Simulated scan of single mutants.
Amino acid sequence: MPIKSYLAHPHDGKKEELIQALSNLNHCDVIPAENKDVLVLITETETNAEEDILKQKLETISSLKLLAMVSGFNTPKKN
């Protein structure tokens, strides 16, 4: 189960648009900074395939200027 955290930087004046775009995606939680033009994005997917699809969707968001991964790990499912 891949879980990753990112700092998401919007293009100038596009913070609210970016919040909305990220909030509309499955497997994403968005936490806006109160004093800066940056968002914390937490993603949690069930499989690596879902993670790849999510990554492709993130790359298409026009209000996203920069996405920097802060932490990521994969917890294997127990059989």
Rank of each mutant, 00 (worst) to 15 (best):
P2K: 02
S23R: 07
L25I: 10
V40S: 14
I53C: 11
I61Y: 01
F73N: 10
L54F: 10
Q20E: 00
M1Q: 03
N48H: 14
T60G: 01
K55C: 13
L58H: 11
S62K: 14
D12P: 12
K77H: 12
A49G: 05
V38K: 04
I31M: 14
K14T: 07
M1S: 06
L66V: 06
L18S: 00
V40M: 15
I19R: 06
P76A: 05
V30H: 00
L41T: 04
E34W: 06
A21V: 04
L18P: 01
P2F: 04
I61W: 01
S5H: 03
L67P: 03
N35Q: 15
H27P: 01
T43R: 08
L39R: 03
P76T: 04
I19V: 12
I53E: 14
L7W: 03
A33L: 05
N35E: 15
K77I: 10
K78F: 12
V38E: 06
K36S: 11
V70N: 14
L39H: 04
E50P: 03
A8I: 09
V38D: 04
A21Q: 07
E34Y: 08
Q56H: 14
M69G: 02
V40P: 13
D12G: 08
G72K: 05
D12R: 09
N74M: 11
L18N: 00
H11Y: 00
V40A: 14
H9L: 15
K4E: 03
L54C: 11
L64C: 10
V30C: 00
N35G: 13
K57N: 06
N79Y: 10
V70W: 06
N26P: 05
K77V: 11
Y6W: 07
M69I: 06
V40W: 15
